[in-house]
C-alpha cells in the first residue's frame, strides 16, 4: 500500500482510520486535540480534575506508523495531528518566508503539528521521529532534485492553528468552486 520498493528503507505500517477530535477547556479556553480510532467520533463533554473539556470539532483522518525495514523498529506517530504546508501559512510570517527561501533549492517545507505539544522546544525524541518521517517521504520522491523538509512546530502553529491549514480533513469543502 505504501509504494515500498527495493531501496526503500522505511514503510508505512499500522495504517488506521479515525477522527481528529478538537476540544476546549470551558474555563481556561485552552484547546487540544487527540486521535480517536472509534467508528463514531466521541463528542461528550467530560471532567478531568477541575477541568471540563468540551467538543469543538472533528475531522476524518488516517494515522500511521513507520517501520525501518533494516532494523524492524517501528516509529509510532500517535502524536502527529497533521502537517501544514508553508504555502498555507501567512505570507508575512516566518514559516512562509522560510518556505520561500527553501523553495530556491527545490525544498518543500512542511510543519508537523502535534496533538499535545509540550511547553518549550520539541523533545529530542520527537525530532528523531521527524527525521524518520522526512526519510520516508524523501526516499519515495521521483521528481528530480525535489526535496521535502518536515520541521517540528517551532512556530507555535498548534496554539493558533486554523483547521483549514492542517492536512487533516477539516472543512475541505470551504474553498470549493463549482465549474
Amino acid at each position: 500500500m505504501d509504494g515500498a520498493r527495493p531501496g526503500h528503507r522505511y514503510r508505512m505500517v499500522n495504517i488506521r482510520s479515525g477522527y481528529v477530535i478538537v476540544e476546549h477547556e470551558v474555563h481556561s479556553r485552552a484547546m487540544r486535540s487527540y486521535f480517536s480510532p472509534e467508528g463514531v467520533p466521541p463528542i461528550e463533554e467530560y471532567r478531568e480534575g477541575p477541568q471540563i473539556w468540551k467538543f469543538t470539532g472533528q475531522a476524518q483522518t488516517v494515522h500511521f506508523d513507520l517501520m525501518d525495514s533494516e532494523t524492524g523498529v517501528v516509529t509510532r506517530f500517535d502524536d502527529l495531528m497533521g502537517l501544514v504546508s508553508y504555502t498555507a501559512c501567512r505570507q508575512d510570517g516566518d514559516i512562509y518566508r522560510l518556505g520561500e527561501l527553501a523553495q530556491e533549492q527545490r525544498i518543500w517545507l512542511y510543519v508537523a503539528v502535534t496533538h499535545r505539544p509540550s511547553d518549550g522546544p520539541p523533545r529530542a525524541e520527537w525530532i528523531e521521529k521527524l527525521r524518520v518521517l522526512n526519510r520516508y517521504f524523501n526516499e519515495r520522491l521521483q521528481t528530480p532534485n525535489k526535496k521535502i523538509l518536515i520541521l517540528p512546530d517551532y512556530f507555535g502553529l498548534h496554539a493558533e492553528f486554523n483547521h483549514g491549514q492542517i492536512m487533516a480533513d477539516f472543512e475541505l469543502t470551504a474553498m470549493e468552486v463549482e465549474a
Binding site: L83, S85, A88, Y110, R140, L141, M167, L172, M175
Partner: peptide, 15 residues
Amino acid sequence: LQVHNNVIAAANLVD
C-alpha cells in the same frame, strides 16, 4: 472531487 489547497499540498508531499 476535492479542490482545496491542502489536496495540492498533500499531492506534492507524496509526489
